[in-house]
Design a binder for these strands. Structure first.
Lengths: 339, 339
DNA sequence: CTGAAAGCGCTAACAT
DNA sequence: ATGTTAGCGCTTTCAG
């Protein structure tokens, strides 16, 4: 190891005390501009690198933000939904600007969470998707600044959050199918009794049917894991339902899986089934036929989340903020007009 | 913040010294089993959580392993290739077992690397894909234990590495096409002058043609970014080449993109074009037609990489290890037999 | 504007 | 088997 240079070394070389060096490094307005410049210059020259561990121990602040994924492991999240990868990329850019680093952690164990949050001295956390009770307990315990993304627990009034207008988005999706002449419109998503997100989307779909006086019965509601693989499998079940002409799908991954399933059975889309997705993941514009879907602006979402989090970090008393981001229907080629 | 309990608190409560507590916590065989048990119990009862920052400052070891992605940002890597997500998931599991945490960092800036590696006190690093010169410089500087994954610089004899038998794998792919009667077989991959990986694959392909006396000319070599989107676009170029009946593709993402491109133009696969991919990503078995491809065992790869890295961490003098993992051709439905 | 010194929580000689 | 103590590198009062 190239021997580490510390603020002591710099101080010695300059004949001053380490405190002054620290001030200069931290922009504390206690040191003259000339001195400051001199210090910074020699620090640079000596190849000084700030030791965050020491800073952290001293200040109690680690400049680490944890991105908590309620999954068993990272790859599960990434494979399940490309959304995570995109969000993380954008989010990280936002916090790096402020000098923070991102720790991505799949944590689904109370003990581990505690060990990790406290043990590593995490300054703040972002929670994606679901918000287990023990997370909340831990956060409360440590008064952790937190921002929730796409979390819809009834009792999240204690944390800032950013989520999307699932209801309105799916309403628009169903409405579009109706406007294209469809009467038998099914909905597929994760278990709506467990997934609040998908329940919201389902409600939007139902509202559209109701508003346009399109009959609904429970045989139009399907449950399927929102993954490509499960979509492929689900397709063979759906194909048998000759009455259904259109499908509102709670996730693009799922929609694309279903489209693949149809193709495997030589069923054309949108001729045999009109389908609209949700998310507008990258592939949606590239598959054939391209997928009509409800799009969310991931970049804005990430920057809002970062903004809210920093508000809390910089001022723990700052008020809770909740934003529901609007969605846009992107019309492509997976819906056909019928009469 | 719930006031933190330290080893001093534990020591005081038990009427012993912090050193003993530290020994007990660290399994140092200097403290009697009974005492140890008593200490551990009260630590637990008091809600003690080990402060890694302090440990780190004291020992100079952070128990952090950096996963370096030579990309501009994380999402770029994840979106470009599902392989990364999978590898990371497996790798993380392996290091967690040893009590290490993973820091995933997209670093493509010399200064930042240095700041980060030293500043955060990273213990070791894994490098994925490409190995920029300044990485090496930094590693040498800090005598960092490193393992390279899928890196093929000529001068990497200083680091353990695990890579795959690209040459043999692609040889097998091309051979399979030849055995199915194809004579005009093209190759598409990233720029073979810049991507050593794709060059190796290309060489394997060429060898197969040569061994079987299949004519080759440079019009059979195509360059295309290994992404889904670029594959879609590339397809329209390839379609015009009526002479080509089969394609060896350096990445599944690309292959699937091309398949989509063909479908958009109403060209059937494998009737119009036989295609074999590389990687066997999750989607490959799910697309239609399912993709014949060269598979690598990502899980083994990750665990080997972790093993090599720990060898270096635990014994800096341990010898360099290099493994080239074998590949397997997975035969599915994207290749047709012709005569 | 600069310096001295205590302390963040833990480890690891070195003593006992 | 257990206690003492000096750091690890930095921040931050408090004094000058």
């Amino acid at each position: 190891m190239a021997k580490k240079v510390t603020i002591y070394d710099i101080a010695k070389k300059l004949g001053i005390t380490p405190a002054t060096v620290s001030y200069a490094l931290n922009n504390v307005p206690k040191v003259s501009p000339e001195m400051r410049k001199k210090i910074l210059d020699t620090a640079m020259k000596m190849g000084y690198v700030r030791n965050y561990t020491a800073v952290s121990l001293s200040t109690g602040k680690s400049k680490i933000i944890a991105l908590l994924l309620p999954f068993k492991d990272i790859s599960e999240a990434f494979l399940q939904n490309p959304f995570y990868g995109e969000f993380i990329g954008f989010f990280e850019k936002n916090i790096k600007k402020e000098g923070y680093d991102l720790f991505i952690q799949p944590l689904y164990d109370e003990k581990e969470l505690e060990l990790w949050l406290v043990g590593r001295g995490v300054d703040a956390a972002v929670v994606l998707g679901t918000f287990p009770d023990f997370y909340e307990k831990s956060f409360k315990n440590h008064n952790m600044p937190v921002v929730l993304v796409d979390v819809y627990n009834a009792d999240n009034k204690d944390y800032s959050s950013v989520c999307i207008a699932d209801f309105e988005g799916e309403f628009r999706a169903a409405e579009y199918l109706i406007q294209n002449g469809h009467k038998r419109i099914a909905f597929v998503g994760a278990d709506i009794n467990n997934s609040i997100v998908d329940k919201r989307r389902y409600d939007g779909y139902r509202k559209a049917l109701a508003d346009y006086k399109i009959p609904y019965d429970d045989s139009l509601l399907f449950k399927c894991n929102p993954t490509f693989a499960d979509g492929v499998e689900f397709a063979s079940k759906l194909i048998k339902r000759k009455d259904i002409t259109a499908l509102v799908c709670a996730a693009d991954t799922l929609a694309i899986g279903i489209m693949n399933g149809y193709r495997m059975q030589n069923k054309q889309i949108p001729e045999c089934l009109s389908i609209v997705g949700f998310d507008d993941i990258q592939s949606s514009s590239l598959v054939y036929p391209s997928l009509t879907t409800v799009k969310q602006d991931i970049e804005s979402k990430a920057s809002l989340a970062a903004k809210f989090l920093f508000e809390k970090i910089n001022n723990p008393e700052s008020s809770i903020r909740t934003v529901t981001m609007e969605l846009k229907l992107i019309i492509r080629d997976s819906v056909s007009k019928i009469n």
